[in-house]
Write a protein that binds this DNA or RNA. Structure first.
Lengths: 338, 338
DNA sequence: GCCTGGCACTCAAAGGTCACGAGTGCCAAA
DNA sequence: TTTGGCACTCGTGACCTTTGAGTGCCAGGC
C-alpha cells in the first residue's frame, strides 16, 4: 500500500497537472504544496508511484503526468466533490427556471453544463421506459387514417400516423380513445402491452382490425422511442483540449456524432450515483483520451435519464463532478414541478 | 474587363488550390491545365488578377491563392453546379426513404449532407410560419388544466400546458375544440390570429376567460415556434479545415452552437435559388473564413425552410452546390409524400 | 531507516545558421 | 502580345548548439 505521503504527492501531481497542463517536476511540487519534505524525497516517492503505474514521464528529463490509473486513484480516494458556490447555484436555478417546455429544459441544461464545466455536455432526454402515460389521443385525419398522439408525464409528445385496414367511425374511435385512456393513463410504459392485450376482443368484429392496428402502432412507438434521443453542446470547448490538436479532437467529434455511441456511454454509467470513466476505461476507441462524468437524473427518486460531460482525462474532476451533480439535481426538480 | 484567358487562369487557380490546399504557381498551372501559353504569360495575367484583388500571395515568392472576391467571381461566372452521379442519387433516395417521422427526416438529411459534402451540414426544421394547421387538440388533465396540442401539415407537433382561470367542463372544451378546428384546420399559421379573434364572444360568459386563455397560449405557441429549430452535423469535418487549426476552428464551433447565428445565416439566404456566402460576406465574425451554401426546400412550390453546409472558403463549390441542391430536392419530395 | 544536499547526466525545446528551390518581377527580343 | 532569360526574394527544412528543467543516484545526517 502506498504511504499517506505518497498519496499526497499523487494528489498534488494531479492538481498541478490539471492546472498547468504541463508535466510537473519535484521542485515545483515542493514549492506549491507545503509537503514538508525536500524535492529529493519527492523524487523517490515519484519513482515508486511510477513503478506502480500511477504516473509516467513523457520522456526522460521531463516532469511526471498522471496515468489513467493515477486519475482513477485520485477520483476514488483523493478527490472530494467540490460543491458549487451560492452564486453558481442561483445562476443554475435562474437559468433553468426560464424553460418553457421539455425541449427547452434539455437545451438549457446542455448549455448550462457546457458553460459550468467548460467541457462538452451530453444530456439524454427523459426516458420513456420509466415514464408513465399521461394521455393517448386519436385524431381522425381521413376516413382510414388516424393520428396517434402519446403524451408522457415528462411532457414529451410522440405522434404517429396510423393507416387503418378499414374506415373508422368517429364513435368507435372515441370509444377506443376512452377505453384506452382509462386503462393506461398513469401507468408505466412497460406495463402498457399487458394492459391493452385483450382490448380488441371487446370491440365489434368490424372494428377489431382497426383497433389492433392502432394498438400495434402504439406498442411500436413505445419500443422505438425507448431508443432515446440526446442533445450535446459545448463542442467548442474541445479546442481547449491540448496541443496535439487535430489528431485528438477528430475521433472525439466523430464519437459525439454517433448517438449510439453516446447512448451506450451514458448507459454504462451505473444507475445511481455518479460514474466517472477515465481514458481507456471507455470502450469506444475515439474516447480513449477523454473522461466521461455521468449521473442519472429524474423527477422523483428514480433516474429517468442521464446527463454528463465529456472532457480530456486531464480535467478538474472535483469541480466537474460538483457541477454535474448540481445540474442533475436542479433538472430533477424542474421536471418534478412541471 | 478581364480577358477570357485571365478568367481561365483564375478558374485554374481556384481549382488547383481547392485540390491541393497549397498556393499555386505559374509553372504548375501551365503544366496541369493546357492553357497554351507559357508560365511567363501566366505570370503577367496573375499580376493583373492580383491588382484587381481576385488573388493574393501569402508572402513574396509563394504562389497565389484566391481571395474572397476571387471565389465570388468563380462562383458567379466560372463554375457550374456539378450534378450528382446516378449512384449518389440513388443513395440519397434510399437513405431518405427510410425515415419514420419528421425528426428522422431532418436527422437523416443532416447526416447525408455532411457525408456527401464532407462538411458541416445545417438543416432547419420546416417552418411553422408557412405551415398549415392539421389539427388542434385540447386535453383536460385536471379541472383547471388543459393540454394544448398543435399538429402541423409537416408532421410537427407542439404541446403546451394551459392553466385556466376557472374549471372547464368537458362539454365546453369539446365545443371549443370543435369550433377551433373548424376554423383553423388547413389554414396558414399566419392567418390563425384573425380567424379566432372573435371566438370568445360566442361562448357563455363563464367560459370566456378559459377560451381566451387557451387562445392566448395557442397564438403564443405560433409566435414562439416561429423561432425555428435546426439540426447540425458533420462537425468532425472541421478537422480537415487546414493547418492553422485551433484558431480557425474554434470560432466556427462557437458560431455553430449559437442557433440564433445559424438561423440568421440561413435566413439571409435568398428565398429561392441557391445562395453562396463567401468568407467576409458572412456577417458573423467567426465565420469569416468559411463559406455557406444554402438553399430553401419545401414540400410544394414554396420553400418552408432552408438547409445548407458550412465549410472553408476553400471548398469545392460546384460539387457542394450540386449536393446541396440535390438533397434539398429529395427532402422536398419526401415531405410532400408524407 | 528515512530524509537530504550534491552532482553528473539526459534530453526536449528554443534559437541560430545555412543551403535550397519554388516562385516572382522585369526586361529585351521575337 | 508573348516568351525565354535572369536576378532576386524568402519561406522551408536540415542541422547544430545552447539552455535548463528534471532526473537518478550516492554519501552523509537525523
Amino acid at each position: 500500500m502506498l504511504s499517506e505521503r505518497r498519496l499526497k504527492v499523487l494528489r498534488a501531481i494531479v492538481q498541478d497537472y490539471v492546472g498547468t497542463e504541463e508535466p510537473v517536476g519535484s521542485k515545483a511540487l515542493t514549492e506549491r504544496h507545503h509537503l514538508g519534505v525536500s524535492p529529493a524525497t519527492v523524487r523517490n516517492d515519484m519513482a515508486v508511484l511510477e513503478e506502480e503505474g500511477f504516473i509516467a514521464q513523457p520522456h526522460t528529463s521531463a516532469g511526471r503526468i498522471p496515468t489513467d490509473k493515477g486519475y482513477r486513484l485520485f477520483v476514488d480516494r483523493l478527490a472530494g466533490v467540490k460543491p458549487l458556490s451560492g452564486a453558481e447555484r442561483r445562476a443554475i436555478q435562474n437559468f433553468l427556471d426560464g424553460a418553457v417546455d421539455l425541449d427547452d429544459v434539455v437545451a438549457r441544461t446542455v448549455r448550462l453544463l457546457a458553460q459550468l464545466t467548460r467541457q462538452v455536455a451530453v444530456v439524454q432526454y427523459p426516458s420513456l421506459t420509466r415514464s408513465t402515460v399521461r394521455h393517448v389521443e386519436l385524431l381522425p385525419l381521413a376516413p382510414a387514417r388516424v393520428m396517434l398522439v402519446l403524451i408522457t408525464d415528462t411532457g414529451r409528445v410522440e405522434q404517429r400516423m396510423v393507416d387503418c385496414p378499414a374506415p373508422v367511425g368517429e364513435v368507435a374511435l372515441a370509444d377506443l380513445r376512452a377505453r384506452l385512456n382509462s386503462r393506461v393513463v398513469g401507468r408505466r410504459f412497460t406495463d402498457v402491452p399487458q394492459l391493452v392485450q385483450d382490448l380488441p376482443d371487446s370491440f365489434e368484429q368490424d372494428d377489431r382490425g382497426t383497433v389492433s392496428t392502432v394498438l400495434a402502432v402504439l406498442l411500436e412507438t413505445l419500443v422505438e422511442e425507448t431508443e432515446e434521443r440526446l442533445m450535446i453542446g459545448g463542442t467548442a470547448n474541445l479546442t481547449r483540449f491540448g496541443h496535439d490538436f487535430p489528431l485528438t479532437i477528430r475521433p472525439v467529434l466523430e464519437a459525439l456524432e454517433e448517438q449510439v455511441v453516446l447512448l451506450k456511454l451514458l448507459g454504462e454509467a451505473t444507475d445511481s450515483g455518479m460514474t466517472v470513466r477515465i481514458g481507456h476505461e471507455n470502450a469506444h476507441e475515439g474516447l480513449n483520451s477523454t473522461s466521461v462524468v455521468a449521473v442519472g437524473y429524474g423527477s422523483g427518486d428514480e433516474a429517468v435519464a442521464k446527463l454528463g460531460v465529456v472532457g480530456p482525462t486531464r480535467m478538474d474532476y472535483p469541480g466537474t463532478m460538483g457541477a454535474v451533480r448540481a445540474v442533475a439535481r436542479y433538472v430533477g426538480q424542474i421536471l418534478a414541478e412541471s
